[in-house]
């Protein structure tokens, strides 16, 4: 929870950004603090303009967080593009830099629905056909997302950078691995293997959400209401998004249902292709392994922050003990890909 002085400053910052976008009569009330961290806070707010109350979400991020994540201007541009392409997403209200607190502020509409993965899975289990529908909606949304990026060079998108060749992606992973300060031979082995099976065909460069998975989807009675957290968006291979959605880590125990723990791969593929996307199986397999390594190393890096004394977060501490799950998944995927697997769990 943020302290009261923080909240006063946050309200002022949000009102300042709203004013700079033309809503200078708006006053803000914090309804709840969804999360509060050293570099980033997410607040549920009501924006009051006369008799009208607008339910919104405000994200405040310090410069440290935007060094690795998209800045507010980029995310604002992405939300606008998503709306144009009919990809379900929150509606942008305002974005800008709030000098007094030294943070970027992104304000978007608050969309009702469920985001907590296990609750989403329970919701879907209780209504026949809803899981298949959500799977299809994910395939459709991703196809729209991947199609819309081509040629889009709107303001704010320059920060998305240039796409990386898979080999360069592996170089970056290897570099990160070397910085962990602890040997992870399974990831090293995975990187070596991935260099031998690079996708045959060059991907058409698309806008990649980067974190499209169960946990970042708002789900309501009609299925996919919105896709959250666009801050890892970048240009790249569309199969990266599809593989990430299907990582075992995001199935939350429903391992038989590869798509987020709720859907079948063939349904995702059919919906994606039906909406104009092109499915490349070798690239999907490659990205599944590559993203397994990326996330395993990400968890290891979180644990390193804890052991180095840079963070006292219990979540970061716990992350270190989940790395082994990603190592197991990676070895299983490689074993199956090479036909030497002893296990066939997923």
């Amino acid at each position: 929870m943020t302290s009261e002085p923080d909240q006063v400053a946050y309200v002022a910052a949000i009102e300042e950004v709203l004013a700079s976008s033309g809503s200078d009569e708006a006053s803000v009330q914090i309804v709840a603090v969804a999360s509060a961290g050293a570099t980033r806070s997410t607040l549920l707010v009501d924006i009051v303009q006369g008799d009208v109350v607008l339910e919104a979400v405000a994200q405040l991020r310090t410069i440290e967080s935007t060094a690795v994540l998209a800045d507010a201007a980029t995310e604002a541009a992405l939300l606008t593009l998503a709306a144009e392409a009919a990809v379900p997403a929150a509606r942008l209200i305002a974005a800008g830099y709030a000098e007094p607190i030294g943070a970027e502020v992104l304000i978007a509409s608050r969309i009702p629905g469920e985001t907590i993965p296990r609750r989403v899975l329970r919701m879907l289990e209780s209504v026949d056909g809803s899981a298949k529908r959500l799977t299809a909606q994910c395939g459709d949304a991703l196809a729209r997302l991947h199609a819309m990026a081509l040629g889009s060079q709107g303001p704010g998108l320059a920060a998305l950078g240039t796409p990386q060749h898979p080999g360069a992606y592996l170089d970056l992973l290897e570099e990160s691995l070397d910085q962990l300060g602890h040997p992870y031979p399974v990831f090293r082995y995975g990187l070596r293997y991935l260099r031998t099976i690079l996708p045959q065909e060059q991907a058409e460069v698309s806008l990649i959400h980067g974190d499209f998975r169960n946990g970042n989807l708002i789900v309501d009675d009609n299925g996919l209401a919105a896709v959250l957290d666009w801050e890892l968006a970048h240009r790249g291979d569309p199969m990266e998004d599809l593989a990430w959605l299907c990582l075992r880590f995001w199935r939350f125990g429903n391992d038989d249902l590869p798509v987020g723990g709720f859907g079948l791969l063939e349904d995702l593929k059919a919906a994606y292709e039906g909406a104009g996307g092109r499915w490349r199986q070798d690239a999907f397999d490659w990205w599944t392994m590559a993203r397994t390594i990326w996330w395993g190393q990400g968890l290891a890096a979180q644990a390193k922050r804890f052991t180095d004394g840079e963070s006292n977060s219990i979540v970061h501490a716990a992350s270190g003990r989940r790395v082994v799950e990603l190592e197991y998944d990676l070895l299983t995927l490689i074993g199956e890909h090479r036909g030497i697997g002893e296990h066939s769990g997923f």
Binding site: P185, V186, Y189, R321, R322, V324, E325, E327, Y328, L331, I334, G335, R338, I340, E342, H343, G345
Partner: peptide
Amino acid sequence: HQLLMRDVEHRLAIGRPNYS
């Protein structure tokens, strides 16, 4: 591959015993 998997399985017995 076999060596790495055996080592991982030992560690999984602590971190997540039913993970397979």
